[in-house]
Design a protein around this nucleic acid. Sequence first.
DNA 1: TAGGTGAACCTAACATGATTAGGAGAATCC
DNA 2: GGATTCTCCTAATCATGTTAGGTTCACCTA
Lengths: 197, 197
Amino acid sequence: MLGSPTHDRVAERRKAARREIIDAAWEVAHQKGIAAVTLKDVADRVGMRPPSLYSHFASKNAIYDAMFGQAWQGCLDALRAAADRGLPDDPRVAMTVMGRAYFEYAVADEARNQLMNARISADFQPSPEAYAPSLAVWELSRTHLAMIGVTAEADLDLYSAVVGGLVDAQLANDPGGERYARQLERAIGMLADHFGF
Amino acid sequence: MLGSPTHDRVAERRKAARREIIDAAWEVAHQKGIAAVTLKDVADRVGMRPPSLYSHFASKNAIYDAMFGQAWQGCLDALRAAADRGLPDDPRVAMTVMGRAYFEYAVADEARNQLMNARISADFQPSPEAYAPSLAVWELSRTHLAMIGVTAEADLDLYSAVVGGLVDAQLANDPGGERYARQLERAIGMLADHFGF
DNA sequence: TAGGTGAACCTAACATGATTAGGAGAATCC
DNA sequence: GGATTCTCCTAATCATGTTAGGTTCACCTA
């Protein structure tokens, strides 16, 4: 039975329903902010009643969890795409490319960024599965920095905190603007000097 | 009548009640997290029923608002205290003192920090009055940086974003630890180099 | 000092939002 | 074709913020 054509069809329908719910939740998040998403909003958009969502997700936080995983997976994809486009030989430029890829992904969608930092509700904690791509982003950053000779854990800490701080500042103080994009370039230049290349 | 001894007594009682409520809210925030504070929790602690809190605050967000103002006022006081202790002549050291004062205040209390960044609920927006000390902190930073020759707005942006990023990283990745305190020193050293002293 | 006034608290009720219980109808399996 | 399962439904529950309306008591005023 499992693996049968019918089972496949059922599984596909389930998957499609989950995806539809998640997409609806993103829409609401973009319109009203991630923390203001309500099961009624989501249910309305997919043509269901709120309790029916529980046929597809164990709870509201389970929906957040799926979104969280998607958000970080997208970030991972963006970083990989940037790297695949070819990291320049000059370590300064390579660091700029990486930093900018993260910054731009994070800054492009405030709701998504709040979700990625789990700034949603008091009780939301991402599951290990959803958390995996987030760890992968960290690992990828570690790898890329190592490729240009930065291997100390403390250096990765510093780099991440600086880039993260600029993302937050951009979203908090100049949402939709460009004010901190220039500061990002400067910051990465500083880090490059500090790391000695 | 207004300004009479009786009126004073009444006003004092009102003020005391407000303070008691705010203190209770801080207790709850420290125990359960700022976003999990409930009017019932607060009311229980001050020996009231939840609706009675509305005799002293217009809404739950009004309580948050008062807490927000307190938190930033405390930050302002901490920065002033650090400056009054005497900012060193060496601009590098002066910048370190300022940065460390902010970092330590912010990192000392996670609930308070979340509040200061208004990462509470979807609809909380601080009132102008509560926001004033936050602006004063920004102004004070501007003044201090100017005293050591850093006057460009972009430089203040960069400095604030970096320090803020380290605070967030500390609270997110090593709450209660020391991991990012060292990175703060390094970061300020980098900024000093970059600013050219 | 008795009556009026307002402040501060109460209980009851309401609105919203997450969640659970339990059932109906259709798709799927044997 | 009948049993089973899946998916959705309605109804109800619980938590929380908030409003309505009443009671008590301190305090002012005549």
